[in-house]
Design a protein around this nucleic acid. Structure first.
Lengths: 121, 121
DNA sequence: CATGATACATACTTTAGGGTAAGTACTTGT
DNA sequence: ACAAGTACTTACCCTAAAGTATGTATCATG
């Protein structure tokens, strides 16, 4: 009979948290630094891979495709590749991705408000 | 004359990105897994430290105070400590934090919609 | 004939974030 | 006298994420 530590075994609770807390659920899908930024840049329309790359100079190529793949497999963006050479690949938001735009827009809105100092006394 | 690598030195661009992209700006403040979840639980009113802890069983104490401290120093939450013993400390949203609620609520809304499958064909 | 553009893939290394565990100070309860 | 509750703090470790660098296929262009 080993003693049960209070702070241990966080993983069991995580599944519970996922089913319980809607924000946790969303965080599992877009809760990384780059994903909302990518979605933001896709919100203005379909973009080629290289276009997205140019719009986010701070991201490395590895991070960019890695997150694009994850977003794709989570059903948030749709990848379309034309079988031509040189390759022509576009990414666009899926319906789920479009559904996330209120989140992204709220983020942008807050940033402008915060910079304007409207929350200051 | 050392050759300049295309993918290198991301940090210079990051400052530029911060000033340019509003979503990047917001991500610097709440772009971690736990922060939106904490803000979500504070959105229903002031909470004692131990209350927040109980509301988010999946988080460790270390992560919880670490993020609370960061949120405090970023001006998103306000910490109030009564000089009593045992300690009585409450956390609440600042004006900036309240300004973020549309973001958090949009996240929650999306989660429910996604689970209901309303984005499916 | 070698360079550039396209959209990636991959090996390797580093770093930072997160987890585990234990400790602190003070009081109330049993 | 000892445990329990409060709100933390600190040290240590470990893994997953991110950065670095290079490679791939194909064609157009100079």
């Amino acid at each position: 009979m080993t003693a049960i530590k209070k702070t241990s075994t966080i993983q069991e609770n995580k599944q519970y948290a996922l089913e319980t807390c809607p924000v946790t659920y969303t965080m599992e899908k877009i809760g990384s630094y780059w994903k909302p930024i990518i979605l933001y840049h896709l919100s203005t329309g379909d973009k080629r891979y290289s276009e997205v790359k140019r719009m986010i100079p701070a991201i490395t190529e590895k991070m960019l495709i890695q997150h694009l793949k994850q977003l794709e497999s989570d059903g948030l963006v749709i990848r379309e590749a034309r079988p031509v050479v040189p390759p022509f690949v576009t990414y666009k938001l899926s319906n789920s991705g479009i559904g996330l735009l209120p989140v992204i827009e709220a983020m942008a809105t807050w940033a402008f408000q915060e910079k304007d100092g409207i929350f200051k006394p």
